[in-house]
Design a protein around this nucleic acid. Sequence first.
DNA 1: GCCCTCGATGTAAGCGCTTTCATGGCATTG
DNA 2: CAATGCCATGAAAGCGCTTACATCGAGGGC
Lengths: 331, 331
Amino acid sequence: MIAPLGEDETVPTLSAVAKRVGVSSVTVSRVLRTPERVAPETRVKVEHAMRELGYVPNLVAGSLASARTRSVGALVPTIANSTFADTVQGLTDELEPLGYSVILAESRYDAAREDRMLLALLSRRPEAIIMVGSPVTQYGQRLLRHARIPIVETWELPASPIDAVVGFDNYKAGRAVARHLIAQGRRRMAFIGGNERRSTLRWSGFRDEILANGLQEPRLLILERNARAGDAAHANLPDVDAAFASSDAYAIGFMAGLRKAGLLHDGPAHKQPVAVIGLGNLEMGRLISPSLSTISVHGHKIGRTAAVLTLDRSGERRVDIGFELVLRDSG
Amino acid sequence: MIAPLGEDETVPTLSAVAKRVGVSSVTVSRVLRTPERVAPETRVKVEHAMRELGYVPNLVAGSLASARTRSVGALVPTIANSTFADTVQGLTDELEPLGYSVILAESRYDAAREDRMLLALLSRRPEAIIMVGSPVTQYGQRLLRHARIPIVETWELPASPIDAVVGFDNYKAGRAVARHLIAQGRRRMAFIGGNERRSTLRWSGFRDEILANGLQEPRLLILERNARAGDAAHANLPDVDAAFASSDAYAIGFMAGLRKAGLLHDGPAHKQPVAVIGLGNLEMGRLISPSLSTISVHGHKIGRTAAVLTLDRSGERRVDIGFELVLRDSG
DNA sequence: GCCCTCGATGTAAGCGCTTTCATGGCATTG
DNA sequence: CAATGCCATGAAAGCGCTTACATCGAGGGC
């Protein structure tokens, strides 16, 4: 596939450096890994030779020999347009200073692809795997259970996690939003979301709370991935006075539709004909008008915490990082 | 650092599978790599044993033996909140089906960190490196020039690239925006951007075009990373009638400031007291009101093209993917 | 002055694969 | 029927490191 760049001279190895200095290759290895165990004089000579040759350590050889790859696998549904990028960033913030690299894989909300990616990741022998959600298939679960490395599931709080978990209760988030909207006097609710587990959990909570309050069953609008929540959404949801969107992007799209229909004002929440609550707390939501009320989910912190959970396996393996209802002008 | 999970039994290897079936390990290797060269009967037995043992190929050993890691390195300034995620996604879209993994690194617009990440990536012997921009330091440049693998620089069109390049002309983008705003009758311009090369290039083009038209020097507002472009920006830019923001996020932040100051209407571009043009074409920009005019930059396509450039080294090594001025209601 | 320790270096083995080359059996050919 | 070729498999070497373990002087303690 990828053809190596032509030309001749070979990439320098440890022993090339060793030969040049006139020491054995262990010594060279030592100036890399445990420089304090090498006589300063030799060390200087070796470092000099490395620079001259442009030596770049071969970590794949090193990994094989030491059984430590200094890499972690990260599996997310998608990295683009998404708050999962925050989680990945949190992860790297914590891990890169320690010399770990992250191998990134995207499942695209596709079970088969998730399994393939899991296998691909494991083949590279990462020292831990951090994923958004949990493996969907039995096969994926088995793969991870047998991997014998720390596994961190995130963004949810599964009942029987494989190893560690850091996330929040999506069901409760749904209930919290419903509770707020009811208190605000809303009566005809709708839910806008995608067709995946976290979204479904939020829907369940939302619905349960509403029904528990004796209100009518909320409307449910499942959007396909990449669907435009805008015009479509409002056309499908006539006659509602509040909507909970499973992501800020959906919420903002829905608001665009509302605005077109003249159902969006620049005033405060209680003046809105239709209340809208999102989830994710994108910066954008704060900037638009009316500003978006949302569930804030601490994506970055999830990533950092996941990193900590792989590094320190002694403490509590389940972290409920919570969420926060951020009220602004949209609902 | 990361402690391996306790317990005993060792992870199965190729030869463990081989022993179990009673064949040599080459045969097992062959059913993985070239199954058509193995007698169907043996193949079935081997595959069965693999499943029984839960064998997961060790790609790090394979990589060392074959000198092919089937990985590529991706270096971006940041993955969060950013359109670079699109580029990474384009990359993986093209590469994952071919069995490549992407190793992700973030430079955070920091030269020293960029060099460290470059070295870390190269140590893992990726078969290609795709980066946003070009290495900032001499050292980084040298590292890549000596790496003997395809290198793709993106998002710019450097004069003397290391190897391949796919991007657009940031300077021309700046000129194009200026030209448009001038044609729209704007006279007192401002530029809002970050302190990094691509932003500076856009500023140069913007400024040059304005001066070439005999208008007064535009105002320049450099924002720190993560600064809120909102209130701050407008306070610093009184008396302008048009602004070009180096990213959609800045643009939307600036618009929020304008709205507060009563300088933003819901009508069409020519009715706006202050025109605003962004860059990036975030979906959000289409949804807000007034909708954001912007330079669209095809981030996803950049990623895909970068992948193609690493896979097929025969064609043109410089791709100008262009940009597009998308006019909506903000300017 | 002898033994021990310790610091600096080297030797050897091996990590889990792939690659190259060899082998032996069987079918094909004239 | 011998020569030929091919197909399925195996043996051996080695990828570039790390990790025991060995070695060898130089100092220090008594």
